[in-house]
Design a protein around this nucleic acid. Sequence first.
DNA 1: TTATTTTTTTAGACTAATCTAAAAATTTAA
DNA 2: TTAAATTTTTAGATTAGTCTAAAAAAATAA
Lengths: 224, 224
Amino acid sequence: MFKSNYMHSFTEENYLKTIYHLSTTNSLVVSTNQIAEITNTKAASVTDMLKKLSDKKLINYIRYQGVTLTENGKNAALNIIRKHRLWEVFLVEKLGFKWDEVHDIAEELEHINSEMLINRLDDFLGNPSADPHGDPIPDRKGAIQQKKMIRISEMNQSECGIISGVSEHSSIFLKLLDKLGLTLGTHVLVREKIEFDGSVIIQINEQIDQTISRELAKNILIML
Amino acid sequence: MFKSNYMHSFTEENYLKTIYHLSTTNSLVVSTNQIAEITNTKAASVTDMLKKLSDKKLINYIRYQGVTLTENGKNAALNIIRKHRLWEVFLVEKLGFKWDEVHDIAEELEHINSEMLINRLDDFLGNPSADPHGDPIPDRKGAIQQKKMIRISEMNQSECGIISGVSEHSSIFLKLLDKLGLTLGTHVLVREKIEFDGSVIIQINEQIDQTISRELAKNILIML
DNA sequence: TTATTTTTTTAGACTAATCTAAAAATTTAA
DNA sequence: TTAAATTTTTAGATTAGTCTAAAAAAATAA
């Protein structure tokens, strides 16, 4: 097996993905410690890897300052994310997995290296635009269309919309949403916001009312 | 990510698979050099790995003598082979790959670790009994039913049967079979065996006659 | 604005998997 | 049945990715 310049190790790919996620959710510039926390490693290990990724021109790295992704690095990260999300769609749509069961498996599948494979999988799945958690899937050129969504916690009274994403992917959280009937596509109307504890009373699918905690309301994303 | 006792590294898995293949096609006891050749490594590296696999009770290893798989080792190998072959079926049946294009991708996919995934994939594919090359797929308990097949080179004049497997998996060989119309399921009748060079004149699908070389005849497997 | 705390990097070491070169065991052949 | 050839193992290095402990830089607070 040969390894081209355009291929990166399993570990390098995970770092790139982590940097991408951090730089899009927090500040553009990502710190060593942030990466260490997410990848479950020590800061010293991260520093070593940052040097390596910098040598490969995948990140812009300034000692003690932090990193950003280069164009190449960003493309590589988006490609991994594309693969991860397409595999998640496959697992749910074709193999009958639940949305809380697919993350770890997709975490392995995302490192399979074949452009032909992933493009054919994309077609086989009907070129889906979002994964089972509502996260957008980059197309084969790396273009990603982020839909405008707000958290239930940010909605005003009597506003309504459709659950279209989540900002927390843990199994325990997703299973709870299942139990409460708060899956993707569900219609939600904000009845009342409780100031005391941040909980929100919502109407689900224009039927029953339910009170959800601030923690829940913060992590459910709505398209108005 | 945690790693249980029942999980083996990517590399260990490849050694187990190689030992399984060698011990079923050649002699039961496999030598260091044989493994080195197949895995594209040096004998010294193989020796190191054999010690490790022996410590893990996956092989029976006697210095200077060779190795056999233990029960555990055999099960591990069969599981990898099961995964490899199921993924090959998926690639061909669902994603439209040709039978000569799937080996390298399946080589990567076979290391994805999830029993649930592979069992669901098995069901999704309709529990196939053979892969696109006719090789039998072990069931979830590791049972493998080897069909009785003979090479065209071993057939007698006027014998006939169905192409049901190949003993060579290179892309160049499989593409040639495509070109000659010698795909799985094809009916073959032996018209004449040429003593001079071992070539064989066969009738294909009860229609046209074709001469194939000894090299070809040796690697096409027929069910009578 | 100096002192303290936090973050990041360096130095040096470890493990898995590999290698080359040399030694040891086995097999083959004269 | 000994000598030569082949195979296998050992010894010692290397690389990728990780670690701990200590040093250096940056941020925060008195």
